[in-house]
Simulated scan of single mutants.
Amino acid sequence: MTDASRTARSGGERTSLYAEITTRIIAELEAGRLPWVQPWGSADTASLGLPRNASSGRAYSGINVLILWGAVFAGGFSGQTWLTYRQAQTLGGNVRKGERGTTVVYADRFIPDRERHRAREEGDDAQPIPFLKRFTVFNTEQCDGLPENIASVPPPVPEGLILPRAEALIRASGVDVRIGGARAFYHLQHDYVQVPPPQSFFEPVNWHRTALHELGHSTGHPARLGRDLSGSFGSRKYAVEELVAEIASAFLCAALGIVPTVRHADYIGAWLDVLRNDDHAIVRAASQASKAADYLLGLLPDDTPVAGAAREAA
């Protein structure tokens, strides 16, 4: 490769990376988040501090801090330790199949051969050219088989914050429920639920409504009730599924004797659009929510203290 082509390629790569990073930061700001402010509650103490490499122990710096903080928030991770794919293997572990990495950058400088030649000819100092090099890292929560001192361990939930009857239902469901991070969601592809810890809620009882809402989504998996979960954010299908999960959560809370406060109106506008455009929507949604609640409650062992009362209430 000629010096000119190498320079041209690295110049294009620099431009692309700078633009890519800037676009990402703009998206964060447009979503109402300041990427230089830690976007999680102080209750999740494991997430405080700077991201670091789990193998070398070195803290990331500069733009990588903002990138990885954003990834912690987006991925719902409870820890801030990261590894490359190869580092995970070297430590005896592996990145789980299907996990998506986060692109971080390494800033450095190089002096092209032509610039060295020019400097010698003219008696000047050679001028280095700055460049960014990209590489991919994975949160240690995306890895399996890591040594105990490397693997992420979510902070323990203080005793009593999760009601035993809800804990029994979650355990009976067989769904992988991960507690940590700053977002609640159900990941269809990898079939797991992520919920922030109860202590990060203003009223810990509301954790149950959120956890059961996401558990309601999980019943739509093809291996369970097989609902259509293909709707993208903002679509009618998405709004309908959110309505199903929210009603299912209400049914489950009632069956388990949990009385959380009313959900904030974050989805109400989308639900109203659905209901105004289809007067059968609420009946279908409530029916699907009942099936979801019955499915989960039916998994409770017969000798579970809440089983009889829960099924009767459902």
Results as ranks from 00 to 15, higher is better:
K291T: 11
D191E: 04
W82Y: 09
I282Q: 07
E214K: 00
T45Q: 15
Q189K: 10
T23N: 14
P112H: 07
R118G: 04
E115K: 03
F202D: 05
R165V: 13
Q288M: 10
G174E: 10
A119F: 01
A27N: 11
Y85I: 06
Y106I: 09
L29H: 13
E141N: 02
D228N: 08
H117P: 03
A71T: 13
V259E: 12
E148D: 13
L29P: 05
R178P: 02
R58P: 07
L48S: 15
G12R: 08
P156M: 04
L252Y: 00
R9F: 15
D278W: 01
N64W: 01
Q80I: 13
T23Q: 15
E141H: 03
G12T: 09
A286N: 03
E148Y: 01
A286V: 08
S152L: 07
G101C: 08
E203T: 12
I162G: 02
A182M: 07
L17N: 08
D279L: 08
S235N: 03
P222T: 05
E115I: 10
V175A: 04
R6E: 13
R6F: 10
E141Q: 09
V244C: 14
W271Q: 10
L83S: 06
G298Y: 08
E30S: 11
G49V: 13
L91S: 06
L297D: 04
Q194K: 00
L161R: 01
R227E: 06
L215T: 00
G145P: 06
A255G: 09
N64A: 03
D124L: 14
Y85S: 06
C143K: 02
I282P: 04
C253N: 01
L146T: 05
L17Y: 11
S5Y: 04
K97N: 07
E20P: 04
H264G: 15
R171C: 13
E99W: 02
L68W: 03
V95W: 01
V283I: 06
Q38P: 15
A285Y: 02
E242P: 11
Y18E: 14
V153Q: 11
I162Q: 02
E99G: 09
